[in-house]
Design a protein around this nucleic acid. Structure first.
Lengths: 124, 124
DNA sequence: ATTATATTTAACTTATTAGTTAATTAACCT
DNA sequence: AGGTTAATTAACTAATAAGTTAAATATAAT
């Protein structure tokens, strides 16, 4: 198994509601593992493991402070997620160049169709 | 295990480079499973399984056409990904209200240290 | 020095994932 | 009908993931 690339690691880390909730909490400010764990119906070790996953993904960092570990969010990997996702914006917004092609092809196929439909018309 | 929520399913589907490559290919236009599979060093059934994952996540749809299955991208779930991610933009752009607070607090702490060493201090 | 607190590590279980090969389904073509 | 092509399903394996409880570690407080 080749080591996973960054985006893969990031997406995998985000594919868990507990971990996303942790990030959400940390967006409001640093806090300790114990505080972080409180809302979740699972053991501390389970939360600790989630933190490890987030840490390996570069999404959080921990610093010692007495017997507590303070966690803080590190959102840099989310920038890459954002950039990757943006490439698809045109598609989900459905002003699709791709759909244009499809529509054109449809018209080409149905040549007898009259073209005076003033509807949604896109040009390349 | 409760059924995974939408975001979880989407992120999980995206946490694989093969599946992201498939989406990327489909962004350029529909194509058949066989064509889709060609670039990948894995068997057809493996690709077919990836397509199933993408389909269950609502990221693609398949339509029969003779003996071929045409796949097309459905990017709607990516809108949710985008929206989720955007909530963290301020953080990764580091015009962080949060970091501001942190920095201020740091300054405050340092001032205090200069003044007096009286508080919770490491004693080694 | 002991004890309490915060957190991690270890060992284990169960479920899921990503891949394989072999068999099956479905549509097309003479 | 029989053969070819396209894709899926079945059955299996190996690795990873998410959780558990119990033990270990590290610091603070008494």
């Amino acid at each position: 198994m080749p080591p996973a690339d960054r985006l893969t690691t990031t997406f995998a880390a985000l594919a868990d509601p507990t971990r996303r909730a942790i990030l959400s909490r940390l967006a409001a400010g640093e806090c300790s593992v114990g505080e972080l764990a409180k809302p979740f119906p699972m053991s501390m070790p389970a939360v600790s493991k989630h933190l490890r996953v987030l840490e390996r993904a570069g999404l959080i960092a921990q610093t010692r402070q007495a017997q507590w570990r303070q966690c803080r969010i590190q959102a840099a990997p989310l920038k890459e997620v954002s950039e990757w996702t943006e490439r698809y914006r045109q598609i989900w917004e459905e002003r699709l160049d791709r759909l244009d092609e499809y529509v054109q092809q449809l018209h080409a196929t149905q040549k007898k169709e009259k073209k005076s439909h003033g509807r949604k018309q896109h040009s390349k």
